[in-house]
Design a binder for these strands. Structure first.
Length: 951
RNA sequence: GGGCGAGUGGUGGAAUUGGUAUACACAAGGGACUUAAAAUCCCUCGGCGCAAGCCAUGCCGGUUCAAGUCCGGCCUCGCCCACCA
């Protein structure tokens, strides 16, 4: 065998071996249990980043481990290949997105292969391939037939930079999730998927996912936002207050087709007709939703959103109110300070009638009422709702307490926490409801409202339907044809796929498909007359909502899915970034449930276990501008804090995690994020590789200087690797300099998978040193060494190896790979303590070490396994299990404590009984010294572990 | 404002889930080999103390023979959600 560890040669040979033997080809046969190991597929941005390496190494460790444990394993790979970065690249370079994307895929595929992942490449897919997206289109048509997909015109979130519609989930703090640009409201027709119909199941089924992190489940539950309450109405009669009866439209939140807002209402079909446009001319019903129906007798006013029809109506004859409404609408995109924003409002002059007391109640426009949730109107109970309280104080509106919490006295001076407590109060001042607790009051009040036809209990969801139309070119065409005579006509199945022209070059002026007459012009499938094709494409989250199913049957040209899907799914392990906790994972869960209900798959949940890996971080170094810049003097801080807004937008950062379900940065600079540019304009960031840091004798870090000029730079702490901070490390150079095994070992050893991983060149050297030691030890064994080993040392070493193995197996099961790696280091330490190597214990120990190490560093272990004569293929070897007999010791060490402090060790026979141990402990000189004549109260013996003497 | 998570040496991180705190590494210091360097190997390495010993897992209490781990109350940091009625 080779004297020197040469990763490049070893890795090339091992990969060739696996390739030729088609080792990782997965088949659906045999009686082994299946194990489907899935990693979030990457966006082909140009080249791999460290987050990819980490993500896929975790997956590969699990894949190889389970394979050796005797599972029938599938680990596939594909490309999330539609999306905006390709269009941006096209604009920058004049290359069609298709060519850019396919080139990137080719390069990144080669990178993945050089890392030696045990991937079944025969199942590779790319979402931009017609073979793939035809099934997007096919399923879209099925969903259309079922009413799960539908078209409507709605006010949508419009990203002015990307020139496209965003789903609510894609708007973060009023800004586009990718561009950071302030989102505008626009009224645009588009297609929606009724994910709200699944709101209840998506929520309750979270309980069937014990293998998911609690954090992710909490985020999803929070997002679905189920709340129980009562929907009820206040009657009004406008003719009394307003002259000249006006046409009052119904609140736009209700109507045909399960629209976004409050769409979870589908769960509890309303018995009460909505206010119809016809009925709402002069007399009407003002609907509200409340979770605190028990406080209904404390209503002193009603607040409606600025966009509410009643507000619009009232503003017609009230210029000041109209101004106020306009102001609210302008300010509505403001973000975090919304919660703390001053409560503002104006009276409308409209009065409504309390449904139970008959009181006249004034309607106000309130800037704290959201049109997008519930009814866009709320009953205001200042005594028991904090916002209503502040609002009432501000405008001198009455505050009427109707909940009595014994031992507390209500006072209107300042808000108290207990005013909103529904657990400990009973109704008071509420007529017939006095004395009832929360649940009883809600029941009684809901019943009374229902009897009057003015209300009922309702379950409300925060979740909205998913708008999937995008005014983009590089995506899956929506299979609809617009016919002047027949309207919107679905493309017949036989004409699928609607193929996207691949030679367009976007120029930034809208969707280039609009200029492609050859694409647009077609015949109506229904009447045959000339018609126009839909040019909107699907949200790329559609592509990624089912790719994990297609891996099971990627070669099926005649159906979207087949029986093999039921064999492999659900995925036994899904691995990816936490940034997809809500969007991608919720959409995927919805999608598989929808496909289940179409009879296509037998699947309730697609991902049995979920592992969210941590981000890869690195130091940040920068220099401020020489002179303070007038416009943004102190604005450095937000940009530099690692936890600042910029840093947290994982979507943009290449180190973010494996799957760029949507990555802004990649081979091409994304459109500038407003925030990033404003703060960083004059700051120069330096790559940590070009920085020297001084370290004092205690190992404390000192100042940092730029190596090129020797001048100091400032430290910006630690943050995710990103282009904007210039602190990325290119995996390609890591692989070229050190090899795949060292890169993989470093990734696994440095931090547990779910935690962040701080980059350190020195630690990479450490990983390299260890693998060299493994190799050198292999060389030593192969050369044989007849130095005898003392028999007692052999037993100790063997016991040590097997107990390390036991721990490593435990840690593998709980996915704590850093301690698995350290166990292999300890094994080598133990073996190296033996002088000779020509020994059965060494041979056995090395075979265990190599097998435990092989999922992490498959190449070096493959080669050593063969060179040392263990066999042809380490992957075919069984996973090692600890030998129980080797773990047994004749004598064991007990820790001896006095009053809980360790004072001595005591060696006793393994089977010593308690009285014997106690006697031996009490006789021990150290123990005697601490007892010092005091009476012994108690002796606690933990078998095999420790003895505590209490005095 | 709500939810979740974290805080252990100079650093990354261990701790068999209530039982020897700081495993395994990195960095640092010392030494061996070498003409020298690299590589490799050996030693030291939480703090105070000459020592016996004492003090240390963000802070303050509690439960327990025994607490990094459990309970209560704070502090700090991170992430997610947020005028959600």
């Amino acid at each position: 065998m080779q004297q020197k560890y040469n990763p490049q040669v070893i890795e090339r040979d091992a990969q060739k071996f696996w390739d030729e033997a088609q080792t990782f080809r997965a088949v659906e046969t045999g009686d082994k249990p299946k194990y489907y190991c899935l990693s979030m597929f990457p966006y082909p941005s140009g080249k791999l980043h460290m987050g990819h390496v980490r993500n896929y190494t975790i997956g590969d460790v699990l894949t190889r481990y389970h394979r050796m444990k005797g599972y029938n394993v599938l680990q596939p790979m594909g490309w999330d290949a539609f999306g905006l970065p390709a269009e941006n690249a096209a604009m920058a370079n004049g290359v069609p997105p298709a060519k850019w994307t396919y080139d990137n895929i080719a390069y990144m595929r080669q990178q993945l292969k050089s890392l030696g992942f045990a991937i079944d490449w025969s199942r590779e897919l790319a979402t931009c391939s017609p073979d793939y997206y035809r099934w997007n289109q096919w399923l879209f048509l099925r969903l259309l037939e079922k009413g799960i997909a539908y078209k409507k015109t709605q006010v949508v979130n419009w990203d002015p930079v990307d020139q496209t519609v965003l789903a609510n989930e894609q708007v973060i703090d009023g800004k586009g999730w990718r561009t950071g640009a302030s989102v505008e409201k626009r009224e645009i027709p588009g297609y929606y998927l009724a994910i709200t119909k699944y709101g209840d199941e998506l929520l309750s089924a979270l309980d069937t996912l014990p293998g998911w992190p609690e954090r992710v489940k909490a985020m999803q539950a929070n997002w679905i936002g189920k709340s129980y309450g009562v929907r009820f109405a206040f009657r009004y009669n406008l003719s009394a207050a307003v002259s000249g009866g006006t046409n009052l439209p119904s609140p736009s939140g209700r109507g045909a087709g399960g629209e976004g807002r409050g769409a979870g209402k589908d769960q509890t079909p309303s018995l009460i007709p909505n206010p119809s446009p016809e009925g709402g001319r002069e007399q009407g019903l003002l609907w509200v939703f409340t979770t605190r129906a028990d406080t209904i007798m404390g209503v002193t006013f009603v607040a409606v959103a600025a966009e509410h029809p009643l507000a619009t109506h009232a503003a017609k004859n009230n210029a000041k109110l109209a101004d106020f409404i306009a102001e609210c609408k302008r300010g509505s995109v403001m973000e975090a300070d919304m919660a703390t924003m001053e409560k503002k409002g104006m009276p409308t002059g409209i009065f409504v009638e309390h449904p139970l007391s008959g009181e006249k109640i004034e309607v106000w426009v309130g800037n704290y009422v959201l049109m997008g949730y519930g009814e866009g109107a709320v009953m205001a109970v200042p005594a028991h709702d904090e916002r209503d309280f502040h609002f009432a104080k501000q405008y001198g509106l009455p505050i009427k307490p109707v909940i009595d919490v014994s031992s507390q006295t209500f006072a209107t001076q300042a808000w108290q926490e207990w005013y909103a407590d529904k657990e400990h109060g009973n109704c008071t001042n509420s007529g017939k409801y006095d004395g009832l607790n929360y649940a009883a009051a809600v029941d009684a009040i809901a019943a009374d409202l229902a009897a009057k036809g003015l209300g009922e209990k309702q379950v409300l969801y925060r979740l909205r339907d998913w708008g999937v139309s995008r005014q983009r070119y590089w995506g899956c065409p929506i299979p609809i044809i617009h016919c002047p005579a027949c309207g919107d006509v679905p493309v017949p199945d036989k004409d699928l796929p609607v193929v996207l022209p691949e030679d367009c070059v976007p120029d930034g002026s809208g969707n280039p498909l609009l200029k492609r007459d050859d694409f647009i012009n077609c015949a109506c499938p229904r009447c045959g007359k000339p018609a126009k094709r839909e040019t909107d494409t699907m949200d790329t989250f559609v592509d990624s909502s089912w790719y994990y199913l297609r891996y099971a049957c990627a070669d099926n040209g005649s159906a979207m899915v087949d029986e093999r899907v039921n064999y492999w799914l659900p995925a036994d392990q899904y691995i990816g970034g936490i940034e997809h906790a809500i969007l991608h994972l919720l959409y995927s869960r919805f999608w598989s449930k929808a496909m289940r209900d179409l009879g296509l798959v037998k699947l309730d949940e697609p991902f049995k276990n979920l592992l969210t890996q941590g981000m890869v971080l690195n130091e940040i170094y920068f220099r401020k501008p020489a002179l303070p810049s007038p416009p943004t003097p102190p604005s450095l801080t937000p940009d530099l804090s690692p936890g600042g807004r910029e840093e947290t937008s994982a979507y943009l950062l290449p180190s973010g995690e494996g799957s760029g379900m949507r990555e802004g940065e990649g081979g091409v600079e994304a459109p500038a994020r407003a925030g990033a540019v404003a703060g960083t304009g004059r700051i120069t960031y330096y790559n940590p590789a070009d920085i020297d840091v001084t370290v004092d004798a205690q190992g404390n870090r000192g100042g940092a200087v730029l190596r090129a000029d020797g001048q100091p730079v400032e430290s910006g702490g630690i943050g995710t690797m990103s282009k904007s901070k210039n602190n990325g490390v290119d995996p390609q150079s890591l692989i070229e300099d050190y090899g795949a095994d060292i890169a993989r070992f470093y990734m696994m050893f440095t931090a547990p998978p779910e935690q962040t991983l701080e980059w350190s060149d020195a630690s990479v050297e450490g990983a390299s040193r260890f693998l060299r030691r493994v190799w050198n030890y292999g060389v030593k064994i192969s050369e044989s060494d007849n130095t005898p080993i003392a028999p007692n040392l052999r037993n100790i070493t063997r016991r040590e190896i097997h107990s390390l193995l036991k721990q490593a197996n435990y840690d593998l099961e709980r996915h704590q790979f850093n301690t698995v790696a350290s166990a292999t280091m300890k094994m080598l330490n133990a073996l190296e303590r033996l002088l000779g190597v020509d020994d059965a214990v060494v041979k056995e120990g090395m075979s265990i070490l190599l097998r435990v190490l092989s999922p992490i560093t498959p190449h070096i272990t493959h080669q050593l396994w063969r060179d040392l004569g263990y066999g042809d293929d380490i992957l075919a070897a069984p996973w090692p299990e600890p030998d129980a007999a080797a773990l047994i010791e004749d004598e064991i060490d007990l820790v001896v404590q006095v009053n809980g402090k360790k004072r001595a060790d005591l060696r006793v026979p393994r089977d010593a009984d308690k009285p014997a141990i106690e006697a031996a402990v009490l006789a021990h000189a150290e123990v005697q010294k601490f007892i010092a004549g005091q009476p012994v109260k108690k002796v606690i013996i933990v078998p095999g572990r420790l003895v505590n003497v209490v005095i």
